[in-house]
């Protein structure tokens, strides 16, 4: 045993006792530890293949630029909402107020954004700030007020929705076409750039101190605290990020619809959870990948597209979505368990 100096200067490793076991490769580890992400990507590929198949059966051609563009544009709000949701899911919570925040962002955008670059930029920033602020309120209620996430955000959902309706009582307002074409260009799939941006944000989040802290409280809150992590701050941050992303989702929703409606955001509370689950996020916290969640969001949209082209009565849409959600959760749990056992 070498004398213990400062850890910065490790002594000769050959003096170490015991044989060095060969390490498993980086990729092997990654695949084994990110089953949810892998499953989400597989599911996305399967959904795309199935979509192309039903599209072919219906039109005898493959989907082209138009389909790609509209799919990406339609999915953008969900991508953002689901990523927002995933920050909270990582901490073992759920943010039910995402729909309310999106409503308010949507309403504010429709009322205030005018056809001048200044107004567009200024109000985008304001809306994002308000989104983050609403998330901060949730975070304080949960982190400092020690309320259960589901209940606190259920209550703020009601409040945020109320404010949204106050801002925009009737569907209306208008979004300048320029704004729409910058966020969700209707002719070219430029919005893919935003998807890429979200992925990069996730990449940075995963490698940031606060990201580690948020993952840590989902792993084991007590241990996180024992490791000196400020769990309250991490939790408040996770909700604030959720609100920020919900605000962005609301802007994209308004841009897609080119007009405002203070109720269209409601459904995103649920679909954002669905996208998280399909994306392999563990609802018990501490495990999951934003890349998977993005894939999950696209799968959610693709299901709707597939149902449309399979001539299934759109009235049944919720039925298939619900069924798919259950099947996906059950299967991913079963596969995860199977892989764990066989390792």
């Amino acid at each position: 045993m070498p004398p213990i100096d400062t850890p910065a200067v490790p002594p000769d490793p050959t003096a170490a006792a015991g044989g060095r076991r060969p390490r498993r490769g980086k990729v092997t580890h990654f695949l084994g530890q990110n089953v949810g992400l892998v499953l989400a990507l597989v599911m996305l590929v399967a959904a795309i293949v199935l979509y192309c198949a039903v599209y072919w059966a219906e039109t005898q051609s493959l989907p082209g630029n138009f389909e790609l563009t509209s799919t990406v544009n339609n999915t953008m709000p969900l991508v953002l909402a689901a990523i927002g949701q995933s920050f909270v899911v990582l901490t073992r919570g759920l943010d039910l107020s995402i729909g309310g925040t999106m409503d308010l962002a949507n309403a504010l955008a429709a009322v205030h954004i005018h056809d001048s670059p200044g107004s567009m930029v200024l109000w985008s920033v304001i809306v994002l700030a308000i989104g983050a602020g609403l998330g901060l309120v949730n975070g304080l209620l949960v982190g400092v007020g020690r309320l259960q996430p589901i209940l606190a955000t259920l209550a703020t959902l009601s409040i945020y929705q109320g404010i949204a309706i106050k801002v925009l009582p009737q569907p209306g307002g208008s979004i300048p076409p320029v704004y729409t074409s910058v966020l969700v260009n209707p002719f070219q799939p430029y919005a893919l750039l935003y998807v890429l941006l979200v992925a990069l944000v996730w990449y940075a989040f995963r490698r940031s101190r606060i990201g580690v802290a948020i993952f840590a409280i989902g792993n084991d809150e007590q241990s996180a605290r024992a490791n000196g992590i400020d769990t309250v701050r991490a939790r408040v941050t996770s909700f604030t990020l959720s609100g920020l992303f919900a605000g962005a989702a609301g802007l994209f929703l308004a841009a897609t619809a080119t007009a405002g409606d203070a109720t269209t955001g409601n459904g995103f509370t649920l679909t954002s959870i669905v996208a998280c689950v399909l994306g392999g996020m563990n609802l018990f916290g501490g495990r999951g990948s934003g890349i998977g969640v993005i894939a999950g969001a696209f799968v959610t949209t693709m299901i709707v597209n597939i149902l449309f082209f399979s001539n299934i009565d759109p009235l049944y849409q919720s039925f298939y979505e619900g069924l798919f959600l259950v099947v996906a959760v059950v299967l991913s749990t079963a596969i995860g368990r199977f892989l764990r056992r066989s390792r």
Binding site: M1, P7, P11, G18, R23
Partner: peptide
Amino acid sequence: TWLGIDHIDP
């Protein structure tokens, strides 16, 4: 490695 427990994979 330095602590002599490199059978544990980082």
